[in-house]
């Protein structure tokens, strides 16, 4: 327990993450400018997902934490997606 006490993340890692997040933001603005019909939402959501993974892994330190935390985050995300899916079973087929 003590050996994994603290992983100090260098400042420049955070800086690179910020740059990637900003680039992704502009890309998502760009992709929604192009008329892709129904797919533009999908595109925007994909970019948002990539961004949130970056935030979770580096800013929120999941990459450096114990694996069970990553497992929990994944589990909660899956539960939430399953709830949306099941709710749509009603609305999509109604």
């Amino acid at each position: 327990m003590e050996k994994e006490k603290h992983h100090i993340v260098p400042y420049k890692t955070y800086f690179y993450i910020l740059i990637s997040l900003l680039v992704l933001t502009f890309m998502s603005i760009g992709i929604t400018k192009i008329n892709l019909g129904g797919y533009s939402v999908l595109g925007a959501l994909i970019f948002s997902t990539i961004k949130s993974v970056l935030v979770l892994y580096w800013f929120m330190h999941l990459k450096f934490d114990q694996p069970f935390l990553r497992f929990m985050v994944g589990f909660v995300t899956l539960v939430f997606l399953a709830v949306i899916f099941i709710t749509f079973l009603d609305y999509y087929y109604r």
Binding site: T32, A44, M60
Partner: peptide
């Protein structure tokens, strides 16, 4: 650390709010 985590959560939610409200035309 926890203040940081909380702040990133606020960021995380905005990451989804922004495209869903502002970018869907």
């Amino acid at each position: 650390d926890n203040a940081g985590l909380y702040w990133h959560l606020v960021d995380l939610i905005w990451i989804f709010l922004f495209p869903l409200f502002y970018l869907i035309h």
